[in-house]
């Protein structure tokens, strides 16, 4: 087993613990934004997609990479934006209902 792999496994296990600690503290009130926001974070696979699409060999791997870039970008951009749209709506003070037509 290589050293790199060992480090990756450490990272994996520790990240899982951080995940449990951090996520269990999110109240049900915010579960939908949590899902869409964490979902946007999982679009990090875009990093891999970019490299695959830009390798310049041409051929199949670039095409696959290109599709992956499109999908992952939709995931990232759509995910963060929609989460922001939702979180903007959560307010504490009772609002005067001025946004309804």
């Amino acid at each position: 087993m290589t050293e790199g792999l060992m480090i990756s496994i450490y990272v994996f296990v520790l990240a899982a613990f951080v995940g449990v600690e951090v996520i269990s503290k999110v109240p049900p009130l915010l579960h939908t934004p949590l899902m869409s926001g964490s979902n946007a974070i999982s679009g990090i696979t875009l990093v891999g997609s970019l490299i695959a699409a830009g390798e310049g060999h041409g051929g199949l791997s670039v095409i696959l990479g290109f599709i992956a870039v499109v999908l992952a970008t939709v995931n990232v951009v759509g995910g963060f934006l929609v989460t922001d749209r939702m979180l903007k709506m959560f307010r504490r003070e009772p609002q005067n209902k001025n946004q309804r037509a």
Partner: peptide
């Protein structure tokens, strides 16, 4: 990030 989202 993948693991964080996985646990979430």
């Amino acid at each position: 990030s993948g693991t964080l989202v996985g646990t979430s």
